[in-house]
C-alpha cells in the first residue's frame, strides 16, 4: 500500500496528536491532603461501598468489616493488603499518592466467585481513562481522515 503525501501528513499529525493526548499535563484539581476513613463491609462477593473516591495525597484508612466469612482486601498498584474475620474489624492505612483508578480485590478465598470480588479505589481524576478516551476518539477520526472515503475511490 502506497501512501500519498496527504496521508503521510495525516499520519504525522495523528501521531503528534496522540503524543499530546498521552503526555500532555492535565489540569489537576489540587485539594489539600486530608484523612479519609471508610468503613468497607465485605460479604460474598462484594464490597460496600464498592467505589472509594479520594484525592491524591490523602491518608486513606479502610476499616474492613467482614459480614459473613473471612475476607481480605488487596489494593492493586499499592500492594497494601489486610484480612478481616467477622467480628474483628481491621484497618488498613496508606497514603494515596498514586493517582488513578485501582481495583481492590479479596485476597482470602471466600467461595466460588472469590476471584471476582472486586472494588474500585479512585484517586483523583482517572486521567488514564480520559487519555484513553482521547486516543480512541483520535483513532476513529484519524482513521476516517487517513484513508479515502468510498466516494473518492474507485471500486476495487
Amino acid at each position: 500500500m502506497k501512501l500519498s503525501r496527504e496521508q503521510w501528513f495525516y499520519i504525522i499529525l495523528a501521531g503528534l496528536a496522540g503524543a499530546l493526548i498521552v503526555f500532555a499535563p492535565l489540569p489537576v484539581r489540587v485539594a489539600p491532603p486530608s484523612q479519609r476513613t471508610f468503613r468497607v463491609e465485605a460479604s460474598q462477593f462484594a464490597y460496600s461501598p464498592a467505589v472509594l473516591t479520594v484525592n491524591p495525597g490523602d491518608t486513606v484508612t479502610i476499616e474492613l468489616v467482614s459480614t459473613d466469612v473471612v475476607h481480605g482486601l488487596y489494593v492493586d498498584g499499592y500492594g497494601a493488603s489486610v484480612t478481616a474475620d467477622p467480628g474483628q474489624t481491621v484497618s488498613l492505612t496508606f497514603i494515596a499518592n498514586e493517582p488513578g483508578s485501582f481495583r481492590f480485590r479479596c485476597n482470602v478465598t471466600c467461595g466460588a466467585l472469590h476471584p471476582f470480588m472486586i472494588g474500585k479505589l479512585q484517586v483523583g481524576t482517572n486521567t488514564l481513562l480520559w487519555r484513553a478516551v482521547g486516543l480512541a476518539l483520535l483513532a476513529a477520526f484519524s482513521g476516517v481522515a487517513l484513508f479515502p472515503r468510498p466516494a473518492t475511490v474507485k471500486a476495487v
Binding site: 468489616v65 467482614s66 459480614t67 474475620d85 467477622p86 467480628g87 474483628q88 474489624t89
Partner: peptide
Amino acid sequence: ARNCSACHGESGGGDGVF
C-alpha cells in the same frame, strides 16, 4: 473478639455483624 463479637458486637453492643 474471636468468638463473641461477631454477634455481640466488637464493643459489646449486641450489634455484631450477625
